[in-house]
């Protein structure tokens, strides 16, 4: 069932001098099965937006629909919504609190009212999905590396078997290989389990490499909603929003300005290398 945002506005400190329109008439349809990236400058409304997806915040104006029902309705179960739309916050390892990894991952399903056996099966499956090392299932969360903690936290959300997985900067603070590993794992969750992924990211490179649809937020509005290739063809506009384009796209533009016939629409390093190679070869 898709998530639908219909003319959603959110205003902080309404009626005071400090009033901020954090979301301004946002309409979006998020069908099941997509891999979506959300980018935007700090304060652009990204985090406010994702908190509306699982009912942590309710719109001041407009509506959010899940399964054809308005999530603001009194008889709508937001607890249930939160099982379907899993939200992994930034630095989710700060929210690990149980004595060991397995107990922590069990917390969500246990809270949903599943039996002990169902809970444990869900936890095992979730830990397998994130490729958590088996010999560390009963380790204290303090003994884990940065990447392992992050996997454990993501497993805790996956154990509730959500249809939508929202990840707010899942790679912040990780080393380069740790970043690649987490993104590869998320990409695999999308491909193998058909999970809808919504990735909030600061990295234009990551968005260009992994997602099929990019939503660009700017001052509470949706500035662009398109494929990465189309979105990143708006280099000037993105720069004005405090964002940018992948470095590969920038290098292609610099070479074009110097008369090289490089494809202006390259967005990944591989595409850039291939296109530069072809341009050099054509000249020889």
């Amino acid at each position: 069932m898709p998530l639908i945002l219909d003319h959603v506005s959110q205003i902080y400190n309404e009626g005071t001098k400090e009033s901020v329109r954090a979301l301004d008439d946002v309409s979006l349809i998020i069908p099941e099965g997509q891999f979506i990236g959300i980018i935007g400058h700090t304060g652009s409304g990204k985090s406010t937006l994702v908190q509306h997806l699982n009912g942590l915040m309710l719109p001041k104006k407009g509506s959010v629909f899940y399964n054809g029902k308005d999530i603001s309705d009194k008889d709508f179960s937001r607890k249930e919504l939160r099982q379907h739309v899993g939200l992994v916050f930034q630095y989710p390892e700060h929210q690990l609190f149980e004595t060991d990894v397995f107990a922590d991952v069990c917390f969500g399903p246990k809270n949903m009212g599943l039996s002990k056996k169902e809970t444990e099966l869900a936890a095992f499956e979730a830990l397998r999905m994130v490729h958590f090392p088996e010999d560390l299932y009963y380790a204290s969360v303090f003994e884990l590396s940065g990447g392992q903690k992050r996997r454990a936290a993501i497993a805790g959300v996956l154990a509730m078997k959500p249809d939508f997985l929202v990840l707010d900067e899942p790679t912040a603070g990780l080393d380069p290989v740790g970043r690649l590993e987490i993104l590869g794992m998320v990409s695999e969750l999308h491909k193998k389990s058909g999970l809808t992924i919504i990735l909030v990211s600061h990295s234009m490179e990551d968005v260009a490499t992994y997602v099929e649809r990019v939503i660009v937020m700017d001052r509470g509005r949706v500035a662009y909603d398109d494929t990465p290739r189309e979105v990143f063809s708006h280099a000037e506009e993105l720069k004005e929003m405090g964002l940018g384009v992948p470095e590969s796209t920038e290098i292609a533009a610099m070479l074009r300005a110097r008369g090289f016939d490089v494809d202006p629409k390259v967005i990944t390093e591989k595409e850039a290398a291939d296109s530069i190679y072809a341009a050099l070869k054509a000249r020889r």
Partner: peptide, 14 residues
């Protein structure tokens, strides 16, 4: 588990 800057990687591919 580290990396090199993006332009270095493109140069390496070329």
């Amino acid at each position: 588990r580290l990396d090199v800057p993006g332009p270095t990687r493109i140069a390496y591919e070329l």
